[in-house]
């Protein structure tokens, strides 16, 4: 029961992007297409689950004052694994995500979960937490990239969305990311306030 709770909190009530507001850089940078967003979700969730697992299993042997460097090294190791695997088996994806694969290291969500959750909880709970947070992150990414790709490039997963529609190119560039994420946060506030 507790596992389910830790898993689901990441998706809505404690959604890392929409509620806590961390890990925003990849959100804005890779959501110009749904494909990129999905690959980013896979990569980040993998790193998140693995680092949560490892952090929570070494939590009792790491001295408190050097825990942050240790956590960062653990995260960087898994990011390197992702980087090498993508480079070898998915060179196209590696190219289009580019610099944002090494930048998973500095995604505050991962260090934040390691520090706040995995270093205090059991291994199984940490895995559930990592999966949930990864999915919450991914869901936001996919929704955002859906709007940006359909409106900004008039395509969806490589197919034309509405034949003959003229796309608003600014939406797949940086401004579109900012503005659509702003509107999504507005919508979320609206839903939450109505519930009260």
């Amino acid at each position: 029961m507790k596992m389910v709770k830790e898993f689901t909190k990441g998706i809505w009530t404690k959604n890392p992007i929409l509620v806590i507001g961390i890990g925003l850089c990849p959100v804005l940078a890779v959501t110009s297409s749904v494909t990129n967003a999905l690959w980013m979700t896979v990569a980040t969730t993998f790193v998140l689950v693995c680092s949560n697992l490892l952090v929570s299993s070494v939590k009792s042997i790491v001295p408190a004052h050097i825990r942050i460097p240790v956590f960062i090294s653990i995260i960087a190791t898994f990011v390197t694994v992702v980087e090498l695997v993508l480079k070898a088996y998915q060179p196209e994806v590696y190219k289009s995500l580019g610099i944002f694969i090494p930048l998973i290291v500095v995604n505050c969500i991962i260090l934040g979960r390691a520090e706040e959750f995995a270093s205090k909880n059991t291994i199984l709970l940490s895995i559930a937490d990592g999966l949930g947070m990864g999915l919450g992150f991914g869901a936001t990414l996919v929704v955002l990239s859906f709007f940006r790709e359909t409106l900004g490039a008039n395509s969806l997963l490589g197919y034309t969305f509405i034949p003959g529609m003229k796309p608003a190119t600014a939406l797949i560039m940086a401004p579109g990311g900012f503005i659509i994420l702003g509107l999504m946060l507005w919508g979320m506030n609206k839903i939450n306030n109505r519930k009260k």
Binding site: G21, A170, A174, P175, F178, G182, W186, N189
Partner: peptide, 22 residues
């Protein structure tokens, strides 16, 4: 507007700034 306060309006602002930088 109440629901736009805080983060949402900041993002829209950043979007407009970034539009200017385009």
């Amino acid at each position: 507007p109440e629901n736009l306060k805080g983060m949402p309006i900041s993002f829209i602002l950043a979007g407009l700034l970034s539009l200017a930088f385009l």
